[in-house]
Design a protein around this nucleic acid. Structure first.
Lengths: 164, 164
DNA sequence: TATTCCGTAAAGTTTGAACTGAACAAACTT
DNA sequence: AAGTTTGTTCAGTTCAAACTTTACGGAATA
């Protein structure tokens, strides 16, 4: 009876853990399924197949396939090959903090870079067309670009800092 | 004709600026309308009313009212009072970088704190119930909490750093 | 070679976020 | 006091993201 009790609590525990921890991971711009999927893999000792995940989360195989692919893109999950096993196997990357931060920061830096060059292009247009009347906008534009520079600095700093 | 040309380009310019700059602001977990609204206010010299914004963005007054309220909550926008003007007036806060970073980091810190204490509570449950069989989960749980600590550190550092 | 198995693509469905317009309550004007 | 004006609440609509089921192609197996 004690065993049975433990089993139930353990199940409940796993469930809470998935539910809570995944909330944090969602803040890294992962959606619910992706986050939960990662936690499942993170908690599992052995690599898992799509069917394993499907059973663990109670969702369709397609959903698993899609989510695992974005996790792979972000380099948060690794594909594992085991001799004799036909299905694809996946496991969570070891370095939790490092991987998540890197994925996160890179996404920021990419976006900042893209947007900054867009703003600079607008700035060029102003100069080419010699628009006189809009001093104010020009000032704001410079300010906005400066804002992007500052963001770039912060996120670069995060990348350089090693905590673990 | 040159003037007419300028007017068109200027309009187009404003439009581009709103479109591009707001993309960056969306990354601070603002939705499209909130971001665009901020840029509009940011570009405007004078404080604006809900109707002004409505016209600028071509959306309903309700949408403006809702979005401006979240911007207020995040302290990204300020309400302004001018003698004799009946309508509410709003303007963008001056310190672009500082305000956005603070709002963003605080939202992270709040969430991390909440989730961390949830995980700790789960940890207590394990100890109370004296579940023996699950060494592995217990280890992962500690690791996850450590992960949250690391996140807390990073975001605290950002807050302390002053760029401007 | 035929058949089974696995992952992904395609098509259709569900659900929630974002938006609108109408109705309302409070404040202001006359 | 009656009538406007203004911001917000509420009820309903629209649309995109997330999910499911079915179908398919390519690899493994017999």
């Amino acid at each position: 009876m004690q065993t049975r009790h433990n089993e139930e609590t353990l199940d409940h525990l796993h469930h809470s853990m998935i539910s809570e921890f995944s909330k944090t991971l969602e803040m890294f711009s992962l959606n619910t399924t992706e986050s939960q999927l990662f936690v499942i893999l993170y908690l599992s000792d052995e690599p898992m197949t799509l069917d394993d995940m499907k059973n663990a989360l109670g969702k369709s195989k397609t959903a698993m396939s899609n989510s695992i692919r974005t996790l792979l893109d972000y380099n948060l999950v690794e594909r594992v090959w085991i001799r004799g096993v036909r299905k694809d196997l996946y496991k969570a990357e070891k370095d939790l903090y490092g991987k998540f931060m890197k994925a996160y920061v890179n996404r920021w830096l990419d976006a900042i870079d893209r947007q900054k060059s867009n703003l600079k292009q607008i700035e060029e247009h102003i100069q080419e067309d010699e628009i006189q009347s809009d001093r104010q906008t020009s000032v704001k534009l410079k300010e906005a670009i400066r804002f992007h520079d500052a963001l770039e600095d912060v996120f670069n700093d995060i990348n350089e800092k090693d905590i673990y």
